[in-house]
Amino acid sequence: MCGAPKQGGALAGIDLSTQTVIQGSVWHDGAPVAGAYVRLLDATDEFTAEVVTSPEGEFRFFAAPGEWKLRSLAPVGRAERVLSAEVGLNETTLAIA
């Protein structure tokens, strides 16, 4: 299935010994941003995936170990962050200034 799964929530059922999970939340003005578009770009800045944040502002990707960039788009503004992911859980926050 290629559909966007529900964002956020428990990690139950996800094998963190094999999956490289990048997850976190988008914030603006001290509150989570629901419905923001978060895209995952690879080391060459190429688009890899995009999800929409949950009501709690959460997003989650299943990637591979390496360098990644996260970029969020929302009516209130945009944010960007670079991170280096490893197998297991990689957590981060995107703050819209």
Partner: peptide
């Protein structure tokens, strides 16, 4: 995506 083409990923990275 390039990583799926290369065989590094087998699905889009939101799955």
């Amino acid at each position: 995506s390039p990583d799926e083409f290369a065989g590094k990923l087998v699905a889009p990275a939101h799955l």
